[in-house]
Amino acid sequence: MIIETSALRKSFRSRAGRETKTVEAVRGVDLNVAEGEIFGFLGPNGAGKTTTLRMLATLLEPDGGTAVIAGADLRKNPGEVRRRIGYVAQGGSTWDDSTGREELVLHARMYGIGKAEARERAAKALETFELAEYADRRCKTYSGGQRRRVDIALGIIHSPKVVFLDEPTTGLDPQSRAHMWGEVRKLREMGMTVFLTTHYLDEADALCDRLAIMDHGQIVAEGTPADLKQEVLGDVVSVNVRGEVGKAADLFDNAEYVRKLETTEQALRLYVEDGATAIPHVLRTLDADGVVIDGIELHRPSLDDVFLAKTGRSLRES
């Protein structure tokens, strides 16, 4: 495991008027991230994603708990952790009046890299992230997507083992987001472990090898997107039938592949592990008994259903 955390905690004291309130931002996070994977942190605003990342990136001292990142202990040896990780902040990190190339060279040099090599690395990173064209323009002239790509290039200029990306695609248009997904996959191909946060369901689903769902400072579920969705209750096959729904339902009493069955006035809802293989069975069973089918629909659970099942709220609403 390239990242292992145990019982990581952080609370903030904030003043609201005269009262001081304590916000428990992160309440005991245990995580295991394997080398070479894209690991996602999915959660609503204020869940504690950034706080966790900032702790792992040595920017915030945890109140409690331990973490080992790329073999270095976060509490005992933050200097070594810094050398082995890259971090891209949620709010970006480029200076308006610098050019992308200058930022990259300087950042590389802050890691102790020599001048010539820093220039070489900057040129290569600009190439990789398709920024060469704008490299010598000031950052304030960049589009949101270009600027975000400079941020990511900065985060990996020293070839870290692990790179933390805090909401790499927030605020980008759909095309730039798709582009960014490609960049993130490139990082994995380069052999880096990517730890990113997002509150986009589709992003977590499409981009992450594994993910943890976070809510109110705690991890409520962890696994591959497919496993997590399976865990909820599997796929749902709804069949609209003509005639008596109850009688049609009885036909599935002994069907082992059906985990749960619900009926509405007109339809049967069958919860099954895999909808695609279940549909032929369902059709055959109904057909054999002469039930007339008006329509059939397959609903695959989304990560939102997972979030709903775990927290009782929808991620879209929170």
Binding site: L59, Y87, A89, S93, T94, W95, M110, Y111, L154
Partner: peptide, 13 residues
């Protein structure tokens, strides 16, 4: 505010 200081902080500078 621009995040430059934080960016410096994650390096061993």
């Amino acid at each position: 505010r621009a995040g430059v200081i934080e960016r410096n902080r994650v390096t061993p500078v």
